[in-house]
Design a protein around this nucleic acid. Structure first.
Length: 548
DNA sequence: TGGCCAATACTG
DNA sequence: CAGTAT
DNA sequence: GCCA
């Protein structure tokens, strides 16, 4: 230590990335975790790369040479944690800006060529003659037409009330889970049904929720918490979302702390927050959490392929804007992330229901033209009847009773979709197209529509016998899924996209660890899975987020 | 105080 | 394997 | 953060 000080170094009591220029590691007993911890980071990867971690040798050599070695990283001789610099600094020389940008488009193709599969030329976006025409009004009228459509034409509209009624009983009676202990119609059900629409803006005008302001504030807080890394914020976020659901479902205005606390999923802390919102109209906590770092991290997490950890790391490295990411030579973007940045706004936009429908109506005939016996279904929020969709999920399967399967279909389909200018970029390709079960993620757009946005699209293929499990799984919504999975696990089952398994043996202390995989007992249809779990069947539009 | 929000595929 | 995504 |  004294040696360092004598040679002009200064030691700081508290690690501050703006002050500290080097981290010197002495002794081999010092693991990376320890260093990261000292610096106030969870992991070494969180430490800004601008601050080198060097071994004591750097000091020793520096002193013996009379001056510090110029290139501390030359040969990696003094690097204390090689794995840290490796992933990013490797690119220092290789990636220049212009280079990086111009390769984005090409990367997609490289991505394809990398695999052993053959693809149509992506860059040729001109439309092929076989493309079915788009019904213009389906698109152009989408903006204003949706709400109207839901009121009048939407066959799903009538289901909302029933769903709302059931929901209300569950919440008010504190029923446990989705099981079907039917207490009979409640007289409040109808009154509540009218307000349930605030939960789902689609069927009608928003604004009927008596606690909308509270919901909004808590949702804001939820958003801020969600982008923080680590399991704790994740749990808190889940708690908030439960409280919000509960609040949304509550038919009456919350007036007191006791009112709030009575809601399932609302405890002391949240009740206090609710009171603060009622009294002041806002939440101090939101201002507190909404720091620059959180905002930037949120921005970065909007990039496909960037999660909490990567976003935080980039922030710690000094990046603040999307431009920074493209410019900073230390940042190495994956192919998917490049696409994610290029179409940042498109991808983070939701599409009108009509657009999802139009895309599906383009895609389905193309799939059927390959094999008319295919089962092609759109899932996700579209299947649940939502008025806008974040992405398109398409399930493909085929009844093998005639001895044929859907093997190889996905690859063929994707080639045609690329050719037709519908699928435009790929994000993740299946490991093996010959498999009967695989998943694809990419971007698509409406061809023939000037300025149509890129939309996220997923294709999933499953063996016929798993069709029900997959449908259930990918139709969601996520809270509904979790609820079902949770119930399944408490009943000794396990539910995944392949179906419902029985005889699963779990580690008693850590239930997530399965000691025994069990056997699938229900999977071909959604109905049989519901039945097996003793849950009354719910059509997709009733699988809306609700508390238990 | 510990569990909850699972289970699985692709990327690098 | 860690991170991300569904 | 909530709940058993």
């Amino acid at each position: 230590m004294t040696l360092l000080l004598r040679h002009g170094a200064s030691l700081v009591p508290v690690f501050d990335p703006n002050v500290v220029t080097h981290i010197i590691i002495s002794g081999r007993d010092c693991g990376s975790g320890k260093v990261a911890d000292k610096a106030g980071y969870k992991k070494m990867s969180d430490v800004p790369l601008s601050i080198p971690t060097l071994t004591w040798d750097w000091i020793a050599d520096g002193i013996s040479f009379g001056k510090m070695p110029e290139h501390w990283d030359a040969g990696g001789k003094y690097i204390a944690f090689p794995e840290r610099s490796q992933r990013n600094s490797k690119s220092d020389a290789s990636v220049s800006n212009a280079n990086a940008r111009s390769t984005i488009a090409k990367k997609v193709q490289t991505n394809l060529e990398r695999r052993k599969y053959r693809w149509a030329n992506t860059s040729k976006a001109t439309v092929v003659s076989g493309t079915p025409p788009i019904v213009p009004e389906a698109i152009s009228g989408a903006e204003s037409g949706v709400s109207v459509q839901c009121d009048k034409d939407d066959p799903l509209a009538e289901f909302y009330e029933a769903a709302a009624a059931e929901h209300f009983e569950r919440v008010s009676a504190r029923e446990s889970d989705d099981d079907d202990s039917d207490p009979g119609p409640s007289k409040n059900a109808k009154k509540f049904a009218a307000q349930f629409t605030c939960d789902n803006p689609h069927p009608g005008p928003v604004g009927g929720c008596p606690n909308q302001d509270i919901v909004d504030q808590l949702s804001t807080l939820l958003d801020l918490v969600k982008c923080q890394p680590g399991p704790e914020p994740r749990q808190r976020a889940y708690t908030y979302s439960r409280a919000i659901s509960s609040l949304r479902a509550h038919p009456k205005r919350i007036k007191s702390f006791e009112d709030a606390k009575r809601l399932p999923g609302v405890g002391e802390r949240t009740a206090s927050k609710i009171m603060e919102i009622i009294q002041t109209g806002g939440l101090e906590r939101i201002k507190h959490e909404n720091s620059e770092s959180v905002q930037v991290v949120k921005l970065f997490q909007g990039i496909y392929g960037v999660g909490q950890n990567t976003a935080q790391m980039w922030y710690n490295n000094g990046c603040r804007t999307l431009e920074d990411l493209k410019t900073n030579p230390r940042i190495v973007l994956s192919d998917a992330q490049k696409v994610g940045i290029q179409f940042y706004d498109d991808i983070n936009d939701r599409m009108p229901r009509a657009e999802a429908g139009a895309l599906f109506e383009l895609i389905k005939p193309i799939a059927l033209s390959i094999d008319p016996a295919l089962f092609v279904e759109i899932m996700g929020s579209y299947r649940r009847g939502k008025a806008d969709c974040g992405d398109i999920d398409i399930l493909i399967s085929r009844d093998p009773s005639d001895g044929r399967t859907h093997e190889g279909i996905l690859q063929e389909l994707l080639e045609r979709l690329v050719q037709a200018g519908i699928v435009t970029e790929h994000l993740a390709l299946p490991g093996d197209f010959e498999d009967l079960e695989n998943c694809y993620r990419g971007l698509c757009r409406l061809p023939n529509v000037a300025g149509s946005k890129r939309r996220r699209i997923d294709f999933l293929t499953v063996p016929w016998k798993n069709k029900g499990g997959a449908l259930l799984y990918y139709t969601g919504d996520d809270i509904f899924n979790r609820s079902m999975r949770y119930k399944a696990s408490t009943m000794g089952f396990s539910l995944n996209q392949r179906g419902l398994s029985a005889g699963v043996v779990r580690d008693p202390s850590r239930r997530s660890i399965k000691l025994n995989k069990g056997n699938i007992v229900a999977s071909e249809t959604e109905e049989e899975i519901f039945k097996m779990l003793n849950i009354k069947y719910r059509p997709p539009h009733e699988r809306v987020t609700h508390f238990k």
